[in-house]
Design a protein around this nucleic acid. Structure first.
Length: 201
DNA sequence: TGCCAGGCCCTCTTTAGGGCCTT
C-alpha cells in the first residue's frame, strides 16, 4: 500500500472564517513515496474583499479574484481531487478550519484527519531557529518552490518538509515510512517522549 | 481607522498568561 498524502495550503482574506474570512486560493500536492504525483491549484472568488495588508502579503489582488472561478466550483473540484487521501498542512489547525468551513457551505463534510508539519517539526526538529514554513525550508536546504504565501508554492514547500520529517524520523529514530495515523499520533506526543513513542510503535 | 481567531506549548503554571504559527 503506497504512503500517499494530500498536502494542502489555503490563502485567505484573514485569519478565521468565524469573522467572515474566506479562502481566496487553494493548492493540493498529491505526494507519494517521496515525490509529487499530481497537483490541484486555483484562485477562488468567494465574493469577499481582501484587505490591503493581505494583498501585499500574498500578492493576490481583488482584481485577480474578480475573474477567478466561484469558490463553490473550486471547492467541489478540490474535494473531489482529494477524495479520502489523508491531508497534511503546515499549522493544520488553520487550513482545517477553512477546509471544514468551505466544505460546509457546500453541505459536505471532511472525510479524513489532518497531520500537521508544524507540530511534527516542533517534535522532530526542536533545534530549528523557529518553525515557520519558510524558515524550515531554508534551514533544511529544501527546494525553492516559488513565491512564498502563494498556495501552490507553500503546499510544495510543506510537501518537501513532510518528506524531510519522515526521513528525520527514519534517520534519527529508525522508523521508516511513518503512515498518516502514526503522524497524527506523533504530533500529539509530549516533546520529551518522542524517542520513546517511536521506539514503541 | 484599527481591529477581529484559535490551537498548541512553555513556564515565573495548573484558580494563567503569553508566544508561536497560519492569512
Amino acid at each position: 500500500m503506497p504512503n500517499r498524502f494530500a498536502v494542502i495550503d489555503f490563502e485567505t482574506s484573514g485569519l478565521s472564517p468565524t469573522v467572515g474570512c474566506r479562502a481566496t486560493e487553494v493548492a493540493v500536492v498529491l505526494w507519494q513515496d517521496g515525490r509529487e504525483l499530481d497537483c490541484y491549484h486555483s484562485l477562488m472568488n468567494a465574493g469577499v474583499r481582501v484587505p490591503a495588508d493581505i494583498e501585499r502579503l500574498t500578492g493576490i489582488s481583488n482584481a485577480m479574484l474578480r475573474t477567478a472561478p466561484p469558490a463553490a466550483t473550486v471547492m467541489r473540484e478540490v474535494a473531489d481531487f482529494v477524495g479520502d487521501i489523508p491531508l497534511v498542512a503546515h499549522n493544520a489547525a488553520f487550513d482545517r478550519k477553512f477546509w471544514d468551513h468551505e466544505l460546509g457551505l457546500l453541505g459536505r463534510q471532511r472525510r479524513q484527519d489532518f497531520a500537521c508539519t508544524l507540530l511534527l517539526a516542533r517534535r522532530l526538529l526542536p533545534h530549528a531557529p523557529d518553525h515557520k514554513l519558510g524558515t524550515l525550508t531554508r534551514w533544511a536546504g529544501l527546494p525553492d518552490a516559488g513565491r512564498a504565501h502563494r498556495a501552490l508554492a507553500d503546499a510544495r514547500m510543506a510537501a518537501h518538509l513532510l518528506q524531510y520529517l519522515l526521513e528525520t524520523a527514519e534517520r534519527q529514530h529508525r522508523r521508516p515510512g511513518l503512515c498518516h495515523p502514526q503522524l497524527c499520533q506523533l504530533q500529539k506526543v509530549p516533546a520529551g517522549k518522542v524517542s520513546d513513542f517511536l521506539r514503541n510503535l
